[in-house]
């Protein structure tokens, strides 16, 4: 398998996420459902990896396995050399959900403070981190607002700030901009890239948008469904500095075409 060879050569000290022969079968009322099968993947420090595929291909499940929100039934996963459970207990990652999932009774600043309260950081440090992350997502001035007073895009930025406040080196994002309109999404994609460049975090990003995946990623993992498996891993040749109009460049379009081919190959258009 080409995927195996590609990843096997890269196993070094800097591996943040390592999945080996990972599989997950859900027991449902309609019998077992294989959500993930034989996933081999290594994600290195500082990478921006996108997971793309049709609904039900297990991309979100894979992210949830990394986050220890689901337990794999086969194979192994390690995060920074730890088991996923140890990693969660060590608060090794920040997780951004499909919806902002802000608590409606807390102001934006209190929402960002939530994980810090749970860790038990002293007040002063909480304040310092809130200020820093709010600046990072350009939400300064909205600290005292309640979630309903903010637009959908701003709410999602607040939830990113909350994940960043943690100061974990790994950021897991599950279709964070899926519910937003395209203009807001473009804007947030740009900001996310800037943030990634500035902070040097490792980001795992689930999406079903080809342009989004190509624009953001250093590596694109194409997945297919039933059972969910990795069908292609594409290294991006785009430079780290990416203005929005890079999306019209031939290089960008070539990568997008390859992603599309990968998706088509993995997708049986029976119906």
């Amino acid at each position: 398998m080409t995927v195996n060879q590609a990843t096997a050569t890269r196993v070094e000290q800097s591996a943040v996420v390592e999945a080996r022969q990972l599989g997950l079968t859900f027991q449902t009322n309609d019998g077992p459902v294989r959500a993930l099968s034989n996933v081999d993947l290594t994600i290195n420090k500082g990478e921006f990896v996108s997971f793309i595929g049709p609904s039900g291909c297990g991309k979100t499940t894979f992210l949830r396995v990394i986050a220890d929100l689901e337990k794999p039934t086969e194979g192994t996963i390690s995060i920074n050399g730890m088991s996923s459970e140890q990693a969660r207990e060590a608060r090794a990652y920040g997780y951004v959900f499909q919806a902002a999932a802000l608590l409606p009774w807390r102001t934006i600043e209190r929402n960002v403070a939530l994980p810090l309260e749970i860790i038990g950081l002293p007040r002063a440090e909480q304040q310092e981190r809130i200020k820093r992350t709010m600046d990072l997502v350009n939400l300064s001035g909205f600290e005292k607002k309640y979630p309903w007073q903010l637009s959908g895009g701003m709410q999602q930025r607040a939830s990113i700030a909350r994940a960043l406040a943690f100061d974990a080196d790994l950021l897991l994002m599950d279709e964070p901009f899926g519910a937003l309109d395209e203009i807001v999404r473009d804007h947030l994609n740009e900001q996310l890239l800037q943030l990634w460049r500035r902070t040097d975090k490792t980001i795992c990003f689930v999406t079903h948008s080809i342009p989004e995946a190509v624009y953001l990623s250093t590596r694109i993992v194409v997945m297919s469904q039933r059972p969910g498996r990795v069908t292609d891993v594409i290294e991006s040749t785009l430079p780290k500095e990416r203005p929005l109009d890079i999306r019209e460049s031939p290089e960008f379009l070539a990568i997008a075409a390859r992603v599309r081919d990968g998706l088509r190959a993995g997708h049986s258009y029976e119906d």
């Binding site: 608060r91 999932a101 994980p115």
Partner: peptide
């Protein structure tokens, strides 16, 4: 919501933290 409970889980929040910071409000 399940998402909020998952969120608390990713923070490795204790049952009492989840109770006071999420369930009660």
């Amino acid at each position: 919501e399940v998402m909020h409970l998952d969120l608390m889980h990713t923070y490795n929040a204790s049952a009492s933290q989840t109770f006071w910071k999420l369930r009660v409000p």
